[in-house]
Nucleic acid binder design. Sequence first.
DNA 1: CGATTTTTTGGCAGAATCTGCCAATACTCT
DNA 2: AGAGTATTGGCAGATTCTGCCAAAAAATCG
Lengths: 156, 156
Amino acid sequence: MSNQRLDAIDIRILARLQADGRITNQQLADAVGLSPSPCLRRVRQLEESGIIQGYVGLVDPAAVGLGVTAFVRIRLEQQDDTRLSLFEAAVADFPEVMECYLMTGEADYQLRVLVGSLSEFEDFLRHKLTKVAGVSQVTTSFALRPVVYKTALPVG
Amino acid sequence: MSNQRLDAIDIRILARLQADGRITNQQLADAVGLSPSPCLRRVRQLEESGIIQGYVGLVDPAAVGLGVTAFVRIRLEQQDDTRLSLFEAAVADFPEVMECYLMTGEADYQLRVLVGSLSEFEDFLRHKLTKVAGVSQVTTSFALRPVVYKTALPVG
DNA sequence: CGATTTTTTGGCAGAATCTGCCAATACTCT
DNA sequence: AGAGTATTGGCAGATTCTGCCAAAAAATCG
């Protein structure tokens, strides 16, 4: 999990793995111009150093009945460390919360919430989010449609 | 890319693959209580039907110098189909734009933008985003810190 | 510059995994 | 119960993985 200098080959490895997390080591080695052995070693190093955080399968939300994306901006009553930690622990446990950021500006936090329907969202608001200690103001906007969703960072 | 009924085993397969996109088929089969062969067949079907959209490696943004997350809300001058399509095509080509949603409410679009520094963000705003035809109002909030970032949908 | 150390690479080989095929099992519907 | 359909498990050749070691490349230092 420490610093590490990334050379041109590492960058290409990252680009490839971001595009296809199941590429075989042989294909990857071929793509970046190495033989399998040093290629695998580089990948392992990138994994162990935390630069590669993991590999995941991506599932179509609509296919599993999760068609509603909501963005929720939240103000807390107070912003001391304890309140922030409490709130963060709470949202981290909500399966509906896909993203959460501590923010500058009007809101303290912004959430991206994924649910199956508006009534599920209401349940989430009424029974979960507003029950968290310290939550003062909640503002919701809904996504009509996703336009771009990427996980691959621009590298190279 | 068509509809498909998901049974309990499929759900468990999806959960596992969302948690570890490089799990071997044998481990996966074991975890869901099948032998490798039918397990692989189910995975292939989920892939071909588009329920599994793909597999990706996740890279730490800070490790590649991308430490600034900005949320940008955008109003267009007009909201006819042509303008929307034009805007969407433009943002899809910006490597900085990780997410974009067509929104209800005040803003027409909301973007999550990932850059290395505030000056890079200014470049993005001045030379890219505001140059897109039809963009009228742009409001930015910055993330101080990511709290939750998940790709795994709640299934199971 | 040349010699030494350090780092990185490529090839090898046994182990593990993949994956298509086929017979056996389980399920469905009348 | 029985016919038909769908799903499963086992098998085996092909592919891939992955640790080890010697060779090559790069970096360091006198």
